[in-house]
């Protein structure tokens, strides 16, 4: 009897140890899986996020200056120890690198933006945009775009554009192009103010044509996807997630904090992270 009792207790202890170990392993696996987040929105920047410190002051309503870093994504870690100390040793973490910047000055219904994309051979691409929206509506009225590659003067050109009665007209020194639009035309960087306002926090998709550096990307939809919790430097952060899909665009997510700051914009290999925000 006593022998059987001892055997039962011993078996029970073994079983308990096994279950505890399983739970520990399960917990460990969950921790790696980053259970707090929606992977689709942050998948391209999982290697960057642990170093990301959100901007906690300022707002994106009316007038502001914002600086974003371009976070590029080129594959994922395979789990082996990397020579690059900045890369994660875990499997399936995005390999990210800062590879450019955006400086955006918004003054109510107009903005100016300077975007730079860094090239390894130093031939960095630079685009400067000055854009006027129609008052209040944030629909495009007219703009001037200057584009050049750093150090290569023969690449520099300026385009002027306007949008009226569903007709887009783009002119440069030697060229002129007309294009009919299908929906309201909104510039890509004007979306930050629109998202910041919270107006798109509905179940209805927001449909528009998007103007990006003088090119019209028709039939875009932005859908509100709810709140996600994102791992960042020193903890996690809850952000509203909006997803954009449409012609010529990879699924793009805008992650907006409770004060309306668009903290992160993720594409596939190109994403943007807010680094500075000043209200003027």
């Amino acid at each position: 009897m006593k022998k059987n009792y001892t055997k039962a207790v011993f078996t029970g202890l073994l079983l308990l140890a096994f279950i505890t170990n399983m739970n520990a392993q399960e917990y460990k696996r969950n921790a790696k899986d980053n259970r707090y987040t929606s992977p689709a929105a942050i998948e391209p920047i999982t290697g960057y996020l642990p170093s990301f410190s959100p901007v906690m002051e300022g707002g994106m309503k009316d007038s502001f200056y914002a600086r974003y870093e371009l976070v590029r994504h080129y594959g994922q870690t395979f789990g082996a120890k990397s020579k690059n100390k900045k890369q994660s040793n875990e499997k399936g973490v995005s390999i990210n690198e800062i590879s450019g910047s955006l400086k955006l000055q918004v003054f109510e219904d107009k903005f100016s933006a300077t975007e730079m994309r860094n090239a390894k051979d130093e031939l960095h691409g630079i685009v400067k945009l000055k854009l006027n929206n129609k008052a209040e509506s944030l629909l495009v009225e007219n703009w001037e775009m200057e584009s050049f590659v750093k150090g290569v003067p023969e690449t520099r050109f300026i385009e002027n554009g306007s949008w009226e009665n569903d007709l887009l007209i783009v002119k440069s020194k030697n060229t002129k192009k007309k294009q009919h639009t299908e929906n309201r035309l909104i510039a890509n960087w004007s979306l930050l103010s629109i998202l910041s306002s919270g107006k798109l926090r509905t179940s209805d998709a927001f449909v528009f044509d998007m103007l990006e550096n003088s090119i019209c990307f028709p039939n875009q939809r932005i859908m509100y996807e709810g709140v996600i919790e994102v791992p960042i430097s020193g903890g996690t952060m809850k952000l509203d997630s909006y997803a954009q899909i449409g012609w010529g665009r990879v699924p793009t997510h805008y992650l907006v904090d409770s004060d309306g700051r668009v903290q992160l914009i993720t594409g596939e290999t190109v994403s943007w992270a807010l680094k500075e925000l000043i209200n003027s």
């Binding site: 090239a119 051979d121 031939l123 691409g125 690449t155 290999t269």
Partner: peptide, 24 residues
């Protein structure tokens, strides 16, 4: 060379390639 990068990333650089050619 008017706009080269030393790597193959379209989302990152194709727009720059087009604009550099338009500038040319």
């Amino acid at each position: 060379l008017i706009s080269t990068y030393g790597e193959s990333k379209g989302e990152l650089f194709d727009a720059q390639t087009a604009r550099a050619c338009v500038g040319f």
